[in-house]
Design a binder for these strands. Structure first.
Length: 571
DNA sequence: GCCGTTTTCGGCCCGACTGTTTTCAGTCG
């Protein structure tokens, strides 16, 4: 777990415990707001704390800042320790159950002394919950099914998977006659890395037919809501899908509203309020009169700003930038002229070099770099100097063959060894067009050692790109302990490019780190790291993450023509 | 607890849906 996630959890637990204890609900909401800010901070909270700028974060005031500081310095927060003694309830595990909120936790604790998930499950199975004030048979069943979901551990899905599920449902719904508009909204539209649920918005002639078709979709395991304008289902596998019907004349307002984020929308509403307007999912209103709502652009315009792309809607400065017309022009997948990181069956890839090149050529690329693993990665059958030299000759011949219009670049994904040395000799590295270096071993090294190791590796004069700089696997493995600020500084000095690895489970660097890299003037390479033909399509996920990181075409080396791109790599 | 180009006090997004009610509370997004 990253420091930010740890801090977010601590604050959330404090908020929940305060609420269960019966304190003012706005105090609880304030803690939750702080939690959201930190979760989507995009920068190490420790760095912010070191600069003394915690209260500059939206929603963090003196109280929360003190709690954070105390946690970072001592690993403890006095208030939390006290609360845990007074209210010995495992609020975090109870709150994670769908359908269970702070009020229910408070109720079952006070009436039945329930303090954890096991206790709640037992009570539900024994029928002790129904009969409590406000709780009946149905709620009891709902809680039991919610506990099942938590136990299955399937509460979040990576974006790529969510989009593919969404596309299938969309295909199904689009066969219904009279669908005028259909958009996948929510965090999927904002291209968040992981998705908790999918929101589908529909404008249709026969909304009842849409709803009925939706809840009968073949992969539905339970229907949790089935109304006139909103239905919710949970699929086999656990993903929740919400479908909302919107009228045509307020489709844009609904789309804006249900795309979020919450914090972005709260800011927009308050801006509307100051202008004497009200914003809700049906439109932007001046009294009774609707001034905007048919499309999103109209709403942003009426609020005095330019249209904000969904990927930026996180209340991370995009509103201010839109008010002054200073939003960046975000990169698109069409801007990409080549892929600088890919594998073949020479190491751990599945396709031959020819097959990969054929597939890459259909993307319309101007250049394509073959960069297999090197010898230390024995499990991947990495290349030693001899095999690499042969590969260099082979690529010269392939280029000369004229079979491919694009230029084939010679590369390698060179292993960074324990002390930061590389596992290929300099005189071989010097013959490659693109040298990417990556960490594949000893990933649990402590922060100082890992930082020095990576910095040392990128100081090698033949190194062009740092591959997947933090090593994370989304929902699987956290980032390395590494001081990225120091790495960025070293990279800037040595003209080393940061990779944005586009594999949907990596997305490394992430959006927040990309923004930080941009701030120190670093260039980015968005690469698929494809190990098989189909993974060449992963470029789109890299682009999504880049857009979330405010990245423009000019920030990315593989949007430039070959000559200029190679020039940028020169030392 | 946080926040302020009406405010340092008095608000805090708000509507849909469900379940348990008979007018509303809790959850969710």
């Amino acid at each position: 777990m990253t420091k930010n996630a740890e801090v977010a959890n601590i604050l959330k637990e404090i908020g929940l415990l305060l609420q269960v204890e019966g304190k003012d609900k706005f105090k609880f909401l304030a803690y939750l707001r702080g939690v959201r800010s930190i979760t989507s901070l995009g920068e190490d909270i420790t760095s912010v704390a070191d600069r003394g700028e915690l209260t500059k974060i939206q929603g963090i005031g003196k109280g929360l800042a003190d709690a954070i500081t105390s946690y970072l310095e001592t690993g403890e927060v006095e208030l939390l320790t006290e609360l845990r003694t007074r209210v010995p309830v495992k609020v975090m595990e109870l709150e994670a159950i769908p359908g269970v909120g702070p009020k229910t936790i408070q109720l079952v604790y006070e009436k039945l002394g329930i303090t954890d998930l096991e206790g709640l499950e037992r009570a539900a199975l024994e029928g002790k919950l129904s009969g409590l004030p406000g709780l009946g048979q149905k709620t009891e069943e709902q809680i039991l099914s919610g506990i099942g979901i938590v136990k299955s551990g399937l509460d979040r899905t990576i974006l790529a998977e969510a989009l593919s599920i969404a596309a299938k449902i969309e295909g199904e719904l689009r066969t219904i006659p009279g669908i005028h508009q259909l958009v996948i909204a929510g965090s999927a539209r904002r291209r968040r890395e992981t998705i908790g649920d999918i929101d589908i918005l529909v404008d249709a002639s026969d909304s009842k037919l849409v709803m009925d078709t939706f809840v009968e979709y073949r992969d539905v395991s339970t229907i949790t809501a089935h109304g006139d304008t909103k239905s919710s289902v949970r699929l086999i596998g656990g993903l929740q899908i919400d479908l909302r019907i919107l009228p045509a004349d307020s489709f844009g307002a609904g789309l804006q509203y249900f795309t979020g984020s919450v914090d972005h929308n709260v800011r927009l509403r308050s801006i509307a309020k100051k202008k004497g307007l009200t914003l809700n999912e049906y439109g932007l209103f001046k009294g009774e009169e609707k001034v905007a709502g048919e499309d999103e652009e109209g709403i942003y315009k009426a609020l005095g700003m330019t249209m904000i792309e969904p990927e930026l809607r996180e209340d991370k400065g995009e509103i201010e930038a839109a008010q002054t017309g200073e939003l960046p022009s975000l990169i698109t997948v069409d801007d990409i002229r080549g892929d600088l990181h890919s594998h073949t069956d020479q190491s751990d890839g599945r396709n031959t070099i020819e097959e990969m090149l054929d597939a890459a050529e259909t993307k319309g690329y101007e250049y394509y770099c073959v960069s297999d693993h090197t010898q230390s990665l024995t499990i991947a059958n990495g290349l030693d100097e001899g095999r690499l030299l042969k590969r260099i000759e082979e690529i010269d011949e392939l280029n000369a063959s004229g079979r491919w219009k694009m230029k084939i670049l010679k590369g390698a994904e060179v292993d960074i060894l324990g002390q930061g040395a590389l596992d290929i000799e300099d005189d071989v590295l010097s013959q490659l067009d693109v040298v990417t270096v990556s960490v594949h071993s000893r990933m649990k090294e402590e922060k100082k050692i890992m930082t020095e190791r990576v910095c040392h590796a990128i100081e090698n004069k033949h190194v062009h790109v740092l591959g997947h700089p933090t090593g994370r696997l989304i929902l699987k493995r956290p980032e390395f302990e590494i001081d990225l600020e120091a790495v960025f500084e070293t990279a800037a000095k040595n003209n080393v490019v940061m990779e944005l690895n586009a594999h949907p489970k990596r997305l490394d660097l992430n959006a927040g780190n990309l923004r930080a890299a941009k701030r120190v003037g670093l260039k980015i390479a968005i690469n698929t790291d494809a190990h098989v033909i189909s993974e060449l399509d992963n470029m789109q996920y890299g682009i999504f993450e880049a857009r979330r990181g405010w990245v423009t075409k000019e920030d990315v080396i593989n949007t430039f023509p070959l000559k200029k791109m190679l020039g940028l790599l020169k030392k």
